[in-house]
């Protein structure tokens, strides 16, 4: 028997997020043609995202919409999902791997008494009605394979580990659900401000990007960091940095990739003037393709990279930006 799956998707700037499309694809392959796939969106301003969700292999879409939900706490989200799960008779809940939804995974599993894993890069049903999940651990230096017992499983997927769902017709019905009042244990309830965007470059965010270009101390001075930003812009990539750069204050801490910064796993990671210290490497080694540009042929980054250019970044990077702009028809 194939499981019925609930996908809790997310909208970013009103559009369905890339990782939500990926989760819908995984849901459909788990459910096959027997199991039912329900898409769920919680928040505000969800018209476009829910319409898209309805065409991505779902059997139905449910929308819990309320202006107050844009700053909902995780316990409120968990209560809403738990109520939907009850009504939809699902056995698997898939979540995107965003910061907030990974937190939701733990809450929901505790509330629903489900088995749970986050950061999944492989997923398949087991004989006993559970799931077998693989997930990178130790910063991608090893993979952990878990058997999650059924009949209730909650899994948050790692962004970009799966292809997105393709469009299907006809669109599934979209049902609006009332947002029930959810009292919290705390009195008074926490006050959560509106999200302040840190997308300074206007490009994709680090965690969500399919390409990341990071710069290190090899850039020598903060004003040179624009070389990295221009390369990133030509690729439509997010910008990252080593700790040498964030510690020196050339760029804010939110740029930092590594053990004490963000872990990223894009399709392509380009390291510019970064030596490849282990604390940096653990944050990017799960990237599918790694390119290093460094003047020192002995730099450890070349041991984890797939492709390398040994040379002066001040010459190579502008040439690379120019070439990419050319092939992408940008200039």
């Amino acid at each position: 028997m194939r499981p019925s799956v609930l996908v809790v998707g997310e909208a970013v700037h009103g559009q369905l997020s890339g990782p939500s499309r990926e989760a819908l694809n995984v849901a459909r392959s788990l459910a096959g043609s027997e199991g039912r796939v329900t898409g769920l969106l919680i928040g505000h301003g969800l018209a476009a995202a829910s319409a898209e969700m309805a065409t991505l292999g779902t059997d139905r879409v449910r929308v819990v919409e309320d202006a107050a939900l844009t700053s909902a706490t995780c316990s409120t989200l968990a209560a809403i999902v738990r109520a939907e799960v009850e009504g939809a008779q699902v056995s698997v809940v898939l979540l995107t791997g965003s910061v907030r939804y990974r937190e939701l995974a733990g809450r929901l599993a505790a509330r629903w008494d489900a088995s749970v894993a986050t950061g999944a890069t492989e997923l398949s049903p087991t004989e006993g009605g559970g799931l077998r999940v693989a997930r990178p651990v130790f910063g991608g230096r090893a993979t952990e394979e878990l058997d999650l017992g059924g009949p209730r499983c909650v899994v948050a997927l790692r962004p970009h580990a799966f292809p997105p769902a393709s469009t299907t017709a006809p669109a599934a019905p979209v049902e609006r659900r009332a947002s029930p009042p959810f009292p919290t244990g705390n009195a008074p309830a926490p006050k959560v401000s509106a999200l302040e965007s840190t997308e300074v470059t206007g490009g994709p965010s680090l965690g969500d990007a399919t390409i990341v270009v990071s710069g290190g101390r090899g850039l020598r001075a903060p004003e040179n960091f624009r070389l990295v930003e221009e390369l990133a812009a030509s690729l439509g990539a997010a910008v990252g940095a080593s700790r040498a750069v964030t510690d020196a204050g050339w760029r804010p801490g939110s740029y930092q990739v590594g053990q004490t910064g963000r872990s990223v796993a894009p399709q392509l990671y380009v390291a510019v003037g970064i030596s490849g210290a282990i604390q940096h490497v653990v944050g990017m080694v799960s990237s599918r393709v790694i390119v290093a540009i460094n003047s020192d042929a002995q730099a450890p980054i070349f041991r984890v990279a797939d492709y390398g250019i040994v040379g002066d970044l001040f010459a190579i990077v502008p040439a690379l930006t120019k070439e990419i702009r050319k092939v992408r028809g940008l200039s």
């Binding site: 952990e144 017992g149 041991r303 984890v304 492709y307 390398g308 190579i316």
Partner: peptide, 29 residues
């Protein structure tokens, strides 16, 4: 609720393929 846990190592990265070049433009291309 987790019934088994196993670890495996990814195939070792063999090191970067270095690009031969005469000029930065050639490297980029």
């Amino acid at each position: 609720r987790t019934t088994s846990q196993r670890f495996r190592l990814p195939p070792p990265r063999t090191g970067a393929r270095l690009i031969d070049y005469q000029s930065p433009e050639e490297a980029a291309e």
